[in-house]
């Protein structure tokens, strides 16, 4: 019993760590983007200020489902983050960090947010949710095919298991071992993070920030926390799957920073797709590459 409570405490620590890490990382990357545009940019802790400001404001609420959805969203994401390994040894629930938990438990959070947004009664929110779900359908399929290839190769769906398989030298880092799959995963990750060109569901000038249109104050603050933790989960998932995980926290931070910064830089020079372009894009080349990669790796056994 005590052990389980310890683990849960540990898990909450991981979630907090993820929140702090990604919020700082977000600020730093805003700074980097600003420097590229010859600006000074915000303080590195700007995102913390934003979130705490939102939490301090007096919000408006559209009824119980509006609040309940937000709680479910943040709760689901915190729960997911609690399973996330940071290094191969720092993991709250050892042996239970199954890949599918991350994909499906995250969906509870998404569902909560979608529910709450639709509950606000604003049509733009529903349109945003529609676009978010459609984008999800697009990026998730190629990504899952690549990950299934990895699971088939390593023989485990445990995230630390996959990371350890890369560290012990059974496989190269999967970004090298499965180069095509890596390209696909990068594109899918852009979609997951909602970076340009796949940020169709936010589209502030078009549908007034989509699902978030009716939020202000603490609900928006909680959704921002949720968003930061979601990004933490997705980027660390990528680090563990393709960059060989991490032996130490320092390595984890370095890899995390590189992945996030590179994606940020790429997204800063791109425009925005229309929603049907997102779908056709993902179902054309990324899916094709993912299938080719899976064929090569599973049936021919060619893994670099």
């Amino acid at each position: 019993m005590i052990e389980i409570l310890m683990n849960i405490g540990f898990g909450l620590g991981v979630a907090t760590f993820g929140f702090v890490l990604q919020t700082a990382m977000g600020g730093i990357n805003r700074k980097i983007a600003a420097r590229l545009q010859k600006r000074r940019g915000p303080k590195w802790y700007q995102e913390f200020i934003d979130i705490f400001k939102l939490l301090s404001k007096r919000a408006t609420s559209h009824g119980w489902i509006f609040d309940f959805g937000v709680i479910m969203a943040l709760g689901g994401i915190i729960g997911t983050a609690m399973f996330m390994p940071i290094t191969s040894s720092i993991v709250a629930f050892e042996g239970y960090d199954n890949f599918f938990i991350f994909v499906y438990l995250i969906a509870v959070g998404m569902l909560g947010m979608a529910m709450s947004a639709s509950g606000s009664g604003n049509p733009l929110a529903s349109i945003g949710v529609m676009r978010a779900l459609t984008t999800m359908l697009a990026y998730e399929v190629p990504f899952m095919v690549v990950v299934m290839t990895i699971i088939k190769l390593t023989g485990t769906s445990s995230l630390t298991g996959i990371a350890v398989a890369q560290q012990t030298g059974d496989f190269n880092w999967f970004m090298i071992a499965l180069p095509l799959g890596f390209i696909v995963a990068v594109m899918s990750l852009m979609g997951m993070l909602g970076k340009k060109p796949f940020e169709t569901y936010i589209a502030p000038a078009e549908i007034a920030s989509g699902p978030m249109v009716e939020y202000g104050g603490k609900q928006l603050g909680m959704l921002f926390i949720m968003h930061e933790i979601t990004i933490f989960i997705e980027v660390s998932l990528f680090v563990h799957l393709f960059l060989g995980g991490a032996e130490t926290i320092i390595m984890f931070l370095i890899k995390y920073f590189i992945v996030y910064a590179v994606l940020n830089l790429v997204s800063n020079v791109l425009g925005r797709f229309k929603i049907d372009q997102v779908v056709t894009f993902f179902f054309k080349w990324p899916l094709f590459f993912a299938v080719v990669q899976a064929m090569i790796a599973i049936h021919l056994g060619w893994v670099i």
């Binding site: 849960i8 939490l55 007096r58 919000a59 709760g75 609690m82 606000s120 603490k218």
Partner: peptide, 25 residues
């Protein structure tokens, strides 16, 4: 259980903050 803990934490965050103003749909 973990999902329950997450929801509980989120609920705590929600409940300690300022009460929101009810408005019409």
């Amino acid at each position: 259980c973990v999902f329950g803990v997450g929801v509980f934490v989120a609920f705590l965050i929600f409940i300690v903050l300022k009460k929101s103003k009810k408005i019409d749909l």
